[in-house]
Amino acid sequence: MRLLLLTSVRTVALRGATWRELNLESAIWAIPGERMKMGHPHIVPLSAQAIEVLKN
């Protein structure tokens, strides 16, 4: 739930997330277009708090 609030993505995008989409070193979550409503890839910047949630 906290990651949802920190990223403001749709719940379906968060539930379908894979570790391959996440780059913790660059603090980027790259959601492929196939999973997005409009079919375009979506880049989500990850805050330090979001990265901390993902690491735990």
Results as ranks from 00 to 15, higher is better:
residue 22 L to M: 12
residue 22 L to V: 15
residue 22 L to I: 15
residue 22 L to G: 05
residue 22 L to S: 03
residue 23 N to L: 05
residue 23 N to Q: 03
residue 23 N to V: 04
residue 23 N to W: 02
residue 23 N to T: 01
residue 24 L to M: 10
residue 24 L to V: 06
residue 24 L to P: 01
residue 24 L to D: 02
residue 25 E to I: 03
residue 26 S to P: 01
residue 26 S to V: 03
residue 26 S to F: 04
residue 27 A to P: 03
residue 27 A to C: 06
residue 27 A to E: 08
residue 27 A to H: 11
residue 28 I to L: 13
residue 28 I to F: 03
residue 28 I to W: 06
residue 28 I to C: 04
residue 28 I to R: 13
residue 28 I to M: 09
residue 28 I to Q: 12
residue 29 W to A: 02
residue 29 W to P: 04
residue 29 W to D: 04
residue 29 W to V: 09
residue 29 W to Y: 07
residue 30 A to K: 15
residue 30 A to I: 07
residue 30 A to M: 12
residue 30 A to D: 13
residue 31 I to V: 14
residue 31 I to A: 02
residue 31 I to G: 01
residue 31 I to Q: 03
residue 31 I to Y: 02
residue 31 I to T: 07
residue 32 P to Y: 06
residue 32 P to S: 10
residue 32 P to W: 07
residue 32 P to G: 06
residue 32 P to T: 08
residue 32 P to N: 09
residue 33 G to F: 01
residue 33 G to T: 06
residue 33 G to A: 02
residue 33 G to I: 07
residue 33 G to S: 09
residue 34 E to V: 13
residue 34 E to I: 10
residue 34 E to P: 02
residue 34 E to F: 06
residue 35 R to G: 04
residue 35 R to K: 15
residue 35 R to P: 05
residue 35 R to C: 08
residue 36 M to I: 02
residue 36 M to V: 02
residue 36 M to Y: 00
residue 36 M to P: 01
residue 36 M to W: 00
residue 36 M to H: 00
residue 36 M to K: 00
residue 37 K to L: 11
residue 38 M to D: 00
residue 38 M to N: 00
residue 38 M to L: 05
residue 39 G to C: 05
residue 39 G to S: 08
residue 40 H to S: 08
residue 40 H to E: 12
residue 40 H to I: 10
residue 41 P to Q: 13
residue 41 P to M: 09
residue 41 P to V: 09
residue 41 P to D: 12
residue 41 P to E: 15
residue 42 H to P: 10
residue 42 H to R: 11
residue 42 H to D: 05
residue 42 H to C: 02
residue 43 I to N: 09
residue 43 I to A: 10
residue 43 I to V: 14
residue 43 I to D: 10
residue 44 V to G: 00
residue 44 V to L: 01
residue 44 V to D: 01
residue 44 V to Y: 01
residue 45 P to W: 08
residue 45 P to V: 10
residue 45 P to D: 02
residue 46 L to A: 08
residue 46 L to H: 10
residue 46 L to W: 13
residue 47 S to V: 15
residue 47 S to N: 14
residue 47 S to W: 14
residue 47 S to F: 14
residue 48 A to R: 15
residue 48 A to L: 14
residue 48 A to E: 15
residue 48 A to S: 14
residue 48 A to Y: 09
residue 49 Q to S: 14
residue 49 Q to E: 15
residue 49 Q to L: 13
residue 49 Q to C: 10
residue 49 Q to V: 10
residue 49 Q to I: 11
residue 50 A to Q: 04
residue 50 A to M: 07
residue 50 A to F: 05
residue 50 A to Y: 12
residue 50 A to L: 05
residue 50 A to D: 04
residue 51 I to Q: 05
residue 51 I to G: 04
residue 51 I to H: 05
residue 51 I to F: 08
residue 51 I to M: 11
residue 51 I to C: 11
residue 51 I to W: 07
residue 51 I to T: 06
residue 51 I to P: 02
residue 51 I to K: 12
residue 51 I to R: 15
residue 52 E to N: 14
residue 52 E to M: 13
residue 52 E to F: 09
residue 52 E to L: 13
residue 52 E to G: 06
residue 52 E to H: 11
residue 52 E to Q: 14
residue 53 V to M: 02
residue 53 V to D: 04
residue 53 V to R: 05
residue 53 V to P: 03
residue 53 V to E: 14
residue 54 L to W: 12
residue 54 L to K: 08
residue 55 K to Q: 09
residue 55 K to P: 00
residue 55 K to V: 00
residue 55 K to Y: 00
residue 55 K to A: 00
residue 55 K to M: 06
